[in-house]
Design a protein around this nucleic acid. Sequence first.
DNA 1: GTTTGTGAAGTTATTCACAGCG
DNA 2: CGCTGTGAATAACTTCACAAAC
Lengths: 235, 235
Amino acid sequence: MPAPNHRRIPGATVARLPVYQRILLELVRGGTTTVSSEQLAEMAGVNASKVRKDLSFLGSFGTRGSGYDPEYLLSQIDRELGLDGDWPIAIVGMGNLGRALANSPGFSSRGFRVAGLFDVEPSLVGRRVRGMCIHQLDDFEEMASSDPPRIGVIATPGATAQDVADRMVKAGVGSVLNFAPRVLTVPPHVLLRYVDLSIELQVMSFYLSRTDRRGSAEVSSPLPHVVGLGPSAPA
Amino acid sequence: MPAPNHRRIPGATVARLPVYQRILLELVRGGTTTVSSEQLAEMAGVNASKVRKDLSFLGSFGTRGSGYDPEYLLSQIDRELGLDGDWPIAIVGMGNLGRALANSPGFSSRGFRVAGLFDVEPSLVGRRVRGMCIHQLDDFEEMASSDPPRIGVIATPGATAQDVADRMVKAGVGSVLNFAPRVLTVPPHVLLRYVDLSIELQVMSFYLSRTDRRGSAEVSSPLPHVVGLGPSAPA
DNA sequence: GTTTGTGAAGTTATTCACAGCG
DNA sequence: CGCTGTGAATAACTTCACAAAC
């Protein structure tokens, strides 16, 4: 029998794939032609078996005795993450954060495409960010029906975030990425993720306040880079 | 024998505490005087036993038969997160992202305090953000010695992020929060966390591209809100 | 009756350690 | 030899289920 059409990949692994992707991108740019799990591990701040196990969920892309080819590995990770498709994004809220997101390379590469920018503030409407015009939020529904965004990004102040989320859901956006400092509620069929810019600050203060108390001599701490995501995946 | 001075709290729990904190903040503002684990769970997008287990690591602060007092619980979470201390923060990179961070309420409340803003760009130096003057990056070392930041935040473009991190470490900053789209390397005694604004985009595209293939009828997905952090904690 | 707090059971993730391949 | 890929062992986390407290 043939291999299953797509293997089940643990959520913890999925959360790390973008980190490997970033590192490989650098390596490819730098012209590296081979990289070992040990090297990748050091750069990612995890250990080598984890890297090998993670990559093994995608397939066997390494060469024993030598390592992985960064370019090939990168293409496999991109494929696995679904980055060979088209991912139009609408961003609502064009304050500093919204502009930062719209200008961020990650929002305009590897399949992602900023398809619409919106704000309620009249003084912002009509201005251009990355060559795109900011539209009045009232036009959201209309524009969403002509070029439906697959991901709606919320970058408004906390107070209006829930309203925006409701509108997005009503307009048929199936997934919401929330950068506003507020926990939102959406219907269960909508994929919602919450990125709070200051949450990591709090997690850091937790660990720092504890290491301090033990005397600053004992500084130990693996876990250099950690990113995104807690537990389990959608069914 | 007395209870241990501070219990060991699982990393996964630590990552969720800020989420509970946010929710409790809303509840307190709204005047709610009691909340059950079930209600908290729904708002946080997790299940009720998880909430109870998480909170039980901090102590027994609930009342059986009725629930938790949001205000008291909030104070306990803040204490546990070390938010009763003083946490001066230096931000390097005053583009859109840096300004968004400096203006973000989470950077100026609950013990956090923006102590210094820096950029290399002469046109930004001298401008004010939130009443604070942006300084030339060259002055970083000097200012860091007079009011040493406990957390250094990097909000520069990717290309300069590593240099900034090196300077921070050399100046004695013991913890770095990196928002630049680049994986950084620091000595092992420095606590480093990496928040990439587009990583969640990629994680979303992974799950979306898979649910799509199964036919959009089957939309199921628990895991509504997820935030920060993967695995284990510093020793 | 309601809801917490928690052992015990179940699940997922990490690490070990080594066979197998280049 | 060196390094990957992977079962087996360990550890971490989540969920269940219920006794105890209000």
